[in-house]
Simulated assay, not measured.
Amino acid sequence: MYEALIAELNHLDGPDLLAPLVSDVFCGNIALVSSFGAESAVLLHMAASIDRSLPIITLDTGKLFAETIAYRAQLTALLGLTDLRVITPQANVLQVLDGAGSLHRRDPDRCCHIRKVLPLENALTGFKAWISGRKRYHGGLRADVPTLEETGGRLKIDPLARFTGQQIEAYLDYHDLPRHPLLEKGYLSIGCAPCTVACGSADNPRAGRWSGLSKMECGIHRSPILSRNSAPPAS
C-alpha cells in the first residue's frame, strides 16, 4: 500500500522525514508513540517543532519509575504538547491475568503483552501511521531498523533509525533539552521499574532491560501490531 511513499521518502531522516508525513500525507491520521525514556526528548522535540497538537501516545503500564512519570510531565509542559494520551492496561484483564502484579517475574512476555502490546493496539485504532524512536545503534533486533515500513496495515516511521549516539547527544545539547533523571544514576535505557537495572554501555545501551534473560523487546516492535481481536498469548 505504501511502497511508492517509502521509495520516495526513505532517504530522509529526522525532521526532514517527519514534516511531510505529519503536516501533509497523514495529517490528522498519525500519532507518535513515546516511552518518555532516556532519549525520548529528541523525537518529541522534533515533532513538537512541526505540530504541537500531534497525538502523543504513551503507555503507563502501572510499573513505571516515578522519575519517568515526572519526566513525562516536564517534557509535556516544556514542549507545549497539547494531545498527550496516557494509555493504561485494561483493569479487567489485569485482574484476571495479573491480580497480584507479579506476572513479570514468571512470564515477562505475557506481562508485556497485556500491559503494552494490547493497550497500544487499541490506542492506534483509527490511525494510518505511527512514529517510534528506535535506533540502529542500539543493536540487537534494532540493528537494521528501517526508517519506513508497512506493518499491521499502517506505515511505521522511525525517523531516528540512522542516528548515532553522538548525534542524539549533540541534539540534546544544542536544544538544551533536559535528560531523564535516571541517566545520572546509570540507567542508559529505561523501561518498567521491575525489569530495568542500571547498566549499559555506548554500544549496548539496552543491556539493563530484562537483564539476565534472553528477552530483548517488549513485543510492540517485534511483530506487527496484532488485530483488535487478538488475545493474550497462552501461558
Rank of each mutant, 00 (worst) to 15 (best):
H138I: 09
L94Q: 09
G186A: 04
L182H: 02
D109N: 02
G219Y: 00
G200E: 01
F127H: 11
S189Y: 00
C111D: 14
T88C: 15
L84K: 06
V197C: 14
Y187P: 00
E150M: 11
G219T: 04
R142D: 04
I87E: 03
E149Q: 10
S132Q: 13
W210Y: 06
K116S: 05
P108V: 01
H104W: 12
P181D: 02
L84A: 06
S214E: 07
I114M: 05
V93P: 02
E217A: 06
G139L: 12
K215D: 09
Y187C: 01
P146Y: 08
D176G: 13
E121H: 12
G191I: 03
L188T: 12
I131V: 08
R179E: 14
G200I: 07
D107A: 05
L182V: 06
E149T: 07
K135M: 11
R106V: 05
K156Q: 03
L213S: 09
S214H: 08
R222A: 12
T164P: 07
V197S: 14
P178Q: 03
S189F: 01
I131D: 11
D203A: 15
H175L: 10
L124A: 08
Q166A: 04
P146C: 05
Q167S: 14
L94E: 12
A207Q: 08
L188A: 10
R136Q: 12
H138V: 10
C192T: 02
L124G: 14
L182M: 13
V96Y: 03
R85M: 15
I87Q: 02
G101I: 07
C111N: 02
H113V: 15
A143F: 02
L120D: 08
L103K: 00
P108E: 05
I114R: 00
G101M: 11
L188I: 13
K156F: 06
R209M: 13
L97C: 15
G165C: 14
K128N: 09
T147G: 07
L94W: 02
H104I: 12
L172P: 00
K116L: 10
S211L: 11
I190Q: 00
H113F: 10
I87N: 01
L172A: 12
A143M: 07
Y187K: 00
K128C: 08
R179A: 08
P108R: 13
S189E: 03
R206V: 04
L155W: 10
D158Y: 02
R105E: 06
H138P: 07
T196L: 03
P205R: 12
H175E: 12
K128L: 15
A129Y: 00
